[in-house]
């Protein structure tokens, strides 16, 4: 088993014929992801990478029975692209695009609440279930099938973490990049709720960062409902307040969002905290062999 995506996922790509969309679609196809088509308004009826192109998500969903959409459209249009996908009732939308205006995300977030669709991202590397499917932009070769679930607000730091875990001889059930924006579709708690039910996941690694309070929320959930070991690293322990550290969401404001506080709350609620980012894999191994 796994969460969110598996070998049966039927994936369409929004922004299919663009530079980013084309590149990553071909990488996903190479990995074995079942890309059933793509969407680029005005290019419907053509084929691209030997897959059908549709004008609208609605058409793609109807014709190809797609249940997952991955979005690569420019930030200024990405909010609309998410709304379009969600309006079709599609199960899962994964938005890679970075730089969506926050007011667009306000609309997206509240519209989502009225539907059964789930959004991962934006500003994220996507989701991978090793050896089954990759719906994202992560380097596939570092991943290994296994029993560790990963939830992360970061991109390359997640890859470095996966690499450490694989080097310790462990693999991943599913790795989920939830995104680095202040408003995102799914937070740590949303994904923990899926991992708790997944029999193949025996432990979870959380990669949080400064800004907001979703790590604190996760700590409360873990204490009450999560019975598997959780290891967490919070980046930005040395970040100055008031500065946006690359990610739009990684900012300490109004005395809130410090890494130290997040680490304290997580630790108090039974999470294994790793202070040194070079030791995430090692700590995980120790916790599991204890």
């Amino acid at each position: 088993m796994s969460i969110l995506v598996n070998k049966n996922s039927r994936v369409i790509v929004q922004g299919f014929t663009g530079k980013e969309g084309s590149f990553h679609a071909s990488q996903m196809i190479e990995y074995g992801t079942n890309i059933v088509g793509g969407v680029t308004p005005g290019k419907g009826g053509h084929t691209h990478l030997n897959k059908p192109v549709f004008n609208t998500v609605e058409e793609a969903v109807k014709r190809e029975e797609a249940n997952v959409s991955i979005i690569f459209v420019p930030a200024i249009f990405a909010g609309d692209a998410i709304l379009e996908a969600v309006s079709t009732g599609i199960e899962l939308v994964i938005c890679i695009s970075e730089g969506i205006p926050i007011q667009d995300m306000v609309k997206v977030k509240h519209y989502l609440n009225t539907t059964n669709s789930r959004l991962i991202g934006p500003n994220c590397p996507g989701v991978i279930t090793p050896d089954e499917t990759k719906v994202g932009i992560m380097p596939a070769q570092i991943h290994k099938k296994g029993r560790i679930g990963i939830i992360s607000r970061s991109g390359t730091l997640t890859y470095a973490t996966v690499d450490q875990i694989s080097n310790q001889g462990m693999g991943q059930s599913t790795s989920v990049g939830i995104g680095g924006d202040p408003i995102i579709g799914s937070d740590f708690v949303d994904i923990l709720k899926l991992f708790v039910k997944d029999e193949e996941t025996e432990a979870v690694v959380m990669i949080g960062e400064i800004g907001g309070s979703m790590e604190e929320k996760a700590a409360m959930y873990i204490k009450k409902h999560f019975n598997k070991p959780v290891i967490a690293f919070i980046s930005g322990q040395t970040a100055p307040p008031g500065r946006r550290m690359g990610h739009a969401g990684a900012i300490i404001t109004g005395g809130k969002g410090y890494a130290k506080e997040k680490m304290r709350v997580l630790k108090d609620n039974g999470v294994h905290i790793v202070e040194n980012p070079a030791k995430i894999g090692l700590t995980l191994k120790k916790v599991l062999t204890r």
Partner: peptide, 10 residues
């Protein structure tokens, strides 16, 4: 990457 850049500072 921003997360790795912060972790590097850390």
């Amino acid at each position: 990457g921003a997360g790795l850049a912060m972790a590097t500072m850390d």
